[in-house]
Design a protein around this nucleic acid. Structure first.
Lengths: 149, 149
DNA sequence: CTCGGAATGTAGCCTAGGCTACATTCTGTC
DNA sequence: GACAGAATGTAGCCTAGGCTACATTCCGAG
């Protein structure tokens, strides 16, 4: 998945007013956001409840269980999760570390939103969408701001 | 999806355990992001160059021209744009007003990122993805922060 | 005024992410 | 220990957003 769009770089787009690259990047980043949500949620379920069942996942994400199962299949293909039929879902090393990074990023984003005066409800809600588009550079800047404030 | 205007209501999502709504909202908001980009870009092209041709749009967005044309079809279906074959693309009232709102929001998001110390390049780049997930509430908070700072 | 190249449009294919409907497996209760 | 109901899995369909390949239309040189 990370291929096609990734190497459609600036080279093909000569003297564009610095815009195509931006759009393209935003679009690419969007891919994988769903997997991140799944991994984060599964990690939550595993650490808190001890179990991550497709039905729970589906309910928490507000999708049909079939959709969740299909996406879990993708997680497996991507090497982020493992699951045997009728057993729960578990994360691989890669999955766990991704979950950790996602969770940390989420926290920073929410904190930053709160810090600039966004109400709690909106901060939590919007962060869910925003976090997938926050680059490492921006994330670092957020952290710095929060620390220095 | 026709509610690009910001009312992606909670009403559709019953009493899910406080989390599905968040995820669902982020997901829903994501729909329409592409149309917003198109409308914004078309508006730019029209006001600056005077013309918005499918090929230009495709190049600026980094997609194949066929993709751009297909999406322009969607814009027409959504009542945001009009276009006759081999003539350029133009925005309807709705399209123009959406473009204006998108542009304004984009500016606020970029300014906020800069204000908290995000480098210019990253701010411009990340804003492109982030802006589509910024609710009116959060946008208002951003504006307030920028004014009071 | 014609003709070739660029722009535009069309067709068909692919994946991701949704859904419903149906089939299968598990499991708690009697 | 059987069985109903819940959980799980499978199949097939849909739309959005991408692509390539091909067809059509436009337009500027000559």
């Amino acid at each position: 998945m990370s291929d096609l769009t990734a190497e459609t770089p600036i080279h093909l787009l000569p003297e564009e007013p610095t815009q195509a690259s931006r759009f393209g990047k935003a679009r690419t980043a969007q891919s994988g956001a769903l997997l991140e949500d799944y991994v984060e949620l599964i990690s939550d379920l595993l650490t808190s409840g001890g179990e991550a069942r497709p039905t729970d996942i589906a309910r928490r994400l507000g999708v049909a269980h079939a959709t969740a199962i299909k996406t879990i299949g993708r997680l497996k293909r991507e090497g982020l999760a493992v699951a045997k039929p009728y057993r729960g879902v578990f994360l691989t090393e890669a999955g766990e570390s991704l979950a950790a990074r996602v969770r940390a990023r989420h926290r920073v984003v929410v904190d930053l939103l709160l810090a600039v005066g966004v109400p709690f409800e909106a901060a939590e809600s919007d962060a869910e969408g925003i976090e997938h588009h926050v680059s490492d550079t921006t994330l670092a800047a957020f952290a710095r701001y929060l620390a220095e404030r």
